[in-house]
């Protein structure tokens, strides 16, 4: 329906996914992954699946980011590989 909006969201979705994959700093990767979740939630909402988008925004953008950050503080900040 709003194909310009969806193209823009898909572009930033791919950019954040690549940043999360390639980043050495794990905190950067986690923040980028949260942005990825939030963008995909916006994409679900734009496609009309509001319930799925709501779940993705709450779980992916809210709680799982916090859990990842806690795990990073308990382990190490830099990627080894």
């Amino acid at each position: 329906m709003h194909w310009e909006l969806e193209i823009t969201l898909f572009f930033f979705l791919i950019v954040t996914a690549l940043v999360a994959l390639e980043s050495r700093n794990l905190l950067t990767a986690v923040v980028s992954l949260s942005v990825f979740s939030f963008l995909s939630a916006l994409l679900y909402a734009a496609m009309g699946a509001v319930d799925v988008g709501f779940t993705e925004a709450v779980v992916g953008g809210g709680v799982s980011g916090v859990l990842f950050v806690v795990t990073i503080f308990k382990t190490s900040r830099k990627s080894k590989d």
């Binding site: 509001v50 319930d51 709501f54 779940t55 709450v58 779980v59 809210g62 709680v63 916090v66």
Partner: peptide, 21 residues
């Protein structure tokens, strides 16, 4: 409306975790 037990429970947990943080 959109929403339900899982989303609401996750938001409750997010409020508790926010105070914890």
């Amino acid at each position: 409306s959109p929403g339900g037990g899982f989303q609401g429970g996750t938001m409750l947990a997010a409020a508790l975790i926010l105070v914890r943080l």
